[in-house]
Simulated scan of single mutants.
Amino acid sequence: MSPSNRRFNIPTPQDDDVVPEELSELGQLIDTLSPTRPPELDVAFQRVLNTALRRNQTLERVQEALSQLRVDIKYLMFDLEITRRERDELRQRMEG
């Protein structure tokens, strides 16, 4: 990433945050504009960038939570099946 993009706090490839390629290109295009460009443009771009990064982080957290939920459900289903087997065995012992 070029040093000029560091002004927008665009993460480098080794950072955990992944910037969509389109936003990275937009940041580079904004940097090529005249230095007298409205400062609001830089502020607006930084807000969009921060929002995209937060959205990606939230999505990653949701995906991790769903993965953990799937594992938890599998354990619960296994536990339920074992509990049912034990119940059935005890019923047979009590009846027979």
Rank of each mutant, 00 (worst) to 15 (best):
M1E: 03
M1V: 09
S2E: 04
S2H: 05
P3F: 02
S4V: 06
N5I: 15
N5D: 12
N5L: 15
R6W: 05
R7K: 08
R7H: 03
R7D: 05
F8T: 06
N9C: 12
N9W: 10
N9K: 11
N9T: 06
I10T: 02
I10V: 15
P11V: 10
P11G: 13
P11L: 10
P13A: 09
Q14G: 01
D15M: 03
D15Q: 05
D16V: 05
D16I: 06
D17V: 02
V19Q: 01
P20H: 04
P20D: 02
E21A: 10
E21K: 08
E22A: 13
L23N: 01
L23M: 07
S24P: 00
E25T: 08
E25C: 01
E25L: 14
E25R: 15
L26Y: 00
L26I: 14
L26V: 12
G27Q: 05
G27D: 06
Q28H: 04
Q28F: 06
L29Q: 09
L29M: 08
I30H: 00
T32E: 07
T32C: 01
S34Y: 01
P35E: 08
P35Y: 06
P35T: 15
T36A: 08
R37D: 05
R37M: 10
E40G: 03
E40Q: 15
D42L: 03
V43C: 07
V43R: 15
A44M: 04
F45M: 05
Q46G: 04
R47G: 03
R47N: 11
N50R: 11
T51M: 04
A52H: 02
A52V: 07
Q57P: 00
Q57D: 06
Q57I: 13
T58K: 01
T58R: 02
L59F: 05
R61L: 13
R61C: 07
R61H: 08
Q63A: 10
L66W: 07
L66R: 15
S67W: 02
Q68L: 13
Q68S: 12
L69I: 06
L69R: 15
L69C: 06
L69Y: 02
V71I: 15
D72Y: 01
I73W: 00
K74N: 08
K74A: 14
Y75N: 09
Y75K: 14
L76A: 13
L76H: 09
M77N: 12
F78M: 09
L80R: 14
L80D: 07
E81C: 03
E81I: 07
T83A: 15
R84A: 10
R84F: 02
R87P: 00
R87Y: 11
D88A: 10
E89I: 15
E89V: 14
E89M: 11
R91M: 04
R91I: 05
Q92W: 09
Q92A: 13
M94E: 08
G96H: 03
G96D: 04
